[in-house]
Amino acid sequence: MPLTSWPYLAFPGTAREAMTFYHEVFGGELTLTTYGQIPTEGMPFTPDPEAVAHAQLESADLRLAGGDDPSIEGASMESRVYSLLVGVDTVDDGRALIDRFVAGGGEIVMPFALAPWGDTYGQVKDRFGVIWSFVAPGERREESQLLG
């Protein structure tokens, strides 16, 4: 049975802004469905009709979903518990994406640099508090070099 896994982010009222920004960064097709566009009868809360019930971003290389969760309104997305890992083909591709996040109000968490395992790796926290990790393949180092 083939499986598909997509990251899903529950936003505290910022789903439209965040998913629109991610669409600007990654391209692809973005669909947004508001609570006002779906039946809400029987829901355990009364949602804002303008809040995003479901958003989906699909590009050639990325799938991301999310929506506004009224139960966490006012919460922070910032967490060291999770990050989204994006593999890129080249170091230049990684730097370009990180630059887009920084230009959009993000901040570098870990510089995009050669990692001990031989790839180039870094992290940026976007203006919504989500940490994005980027990795570009590099020349693999011999295990003996890594161990000392």
Rank of each mutant, 00 (worst) to 15 (best):
P2N: 08
L3V: 12
T4D: 07
S5I: 15
S5L: 14
S5G: 02
S5Y: 12
L9H: 10
F11W: 11
R16F: 00
E17Y: 04
A18K: 08
M19R: 08
F21A: 14
F21R: 05
E24N: 08
E24S: 13
V25C: 09
V25Y: 10
F26K: 04
G27H: 09
G28N: 03
L30H: 08
L32F: 06
T33D: 02
T34R: 15
T34I: 09
Q37R: 10
I38N: 06
P39K: 05
T40F: 04
T40M: 01
T40H: 04
G42N: 09
G42W: 12
M43S: 12
T46F: 01
D48E: 11
P49Y: 11
E50W: 02
V52F: 05
V52T: 13
A55S: 15
Q56Y: 14
Q56N: 15
Q56L: 10
Q56F: 12
A60C: 00
D61Y: 13
R63I: 06
R63N: 07
A65K: 01
D69W: 10
S71P: 00
E73F: 02
Y82I: 15
S83Y: 11
S83Q: 12
L84A: 03
V88D: 05
D92K: 14
G94Q: 02
R95S: 03
D99S: 07
R100H: 09
F101R: 08
V102L: 04
A103G: 08
G104T: 05
G104Q: 03
G105S: 06
G106K: 04
G106M: 03
I108M: 01
V109P: 01
F112C: 03
A113I: 08
L114F: 00
P116C: 00
D119F: 11
D119W: 12
T120S: 14
Y121R: 02
G122E: 01
V124E: 05
V124M: 03
K125Y: 04
R127P: 06
F128G: 08
V130T: 11
F134W: 06
G138P: 11
R141D: 00
R141K: 13
E142N: 14
E143N: 10
Q145V: 13
L146W: 08
